[in-house]
Design a protein around this nucleic acid. Structure first.
Length: 155
DNA sequence: GCCAACGTTGGC
DNA sequence: GCCAACGTTGGC
């Protein structure tokens, strides 16, 4: 079982939005980066846990925990011309983009990005590397444990 | 709104 | 296969 960090713009889907979904589950659609797609396709498995990170917002940081709830399967939005994630170059016979389902696990008091940066134990986190823009990144077990034990408080 | 970093595209 | 142009990300 692995650990992840998944970015979401709260205007789009916040941790509260996830908690309010039917089954508290959402298809993690819209990933249009090959590295992030490959993480979902090759390494994510149901039961994996992920920090739910709020990005591109006034208070960026970890807002909760989610659980991977499915294997990767074709992302429906790539075939929907009305979607902003529509990809005219992707054909149903050979879908280019995949997504997993993600289920709400728990909400945390926001752990701000600046707080994460303060801790030497987290210095190697992918999220914290210069210009790291990947929307899905692996989290080392030690990093996961450190954040849970030291910084995480239920909200 | 700015801007640096990075990924993707497409002409050659 | 190179590489310049362009688009996107995301913190500030």
């Amino acid at each position: 079982m692995r650990y992840w960090l998944m970015k979401s713009e709260p205007d789009d889907c916040s941790i509260d939005d996830l908690a309010a979904m039917p089954q508290q589950t959402v298809a993690w659609h819209g990933v249009r980066n090959y590295q992030a797609r490959n993480f979902m396709r090759d390494s994510m498995r149901p039961g994996d846990l992920a920090f739910f990170y709020h990005s591109s917002c006034p208070r960026p940081g970890i807002a909760g925990i989610a659980q991977v709830a499915s294997l990767a399967y074709p992302d429906a939005s790539q075939f929907d011309p009305a979607s902003r994630f529509f990809d005219p170059k992707s054909v149903p016979e050979q879908p280019r983009w995949l997504n997993v389902d993600v289920r709400f696990e728990r909400k945390l008091e926001l752990i701000p990005l600046l707080e994460l940066r303060r801790h030497a134990a987290l210095a190697k986190m992918r999220l914290l590397q210069p210009a790291s823009r990947l929307s899905i990144t692996p989290v080392a077990p030690e990093e996961w444990q450190f954040i849970l034990a030291t910084l995480a408080r239920d909200a």
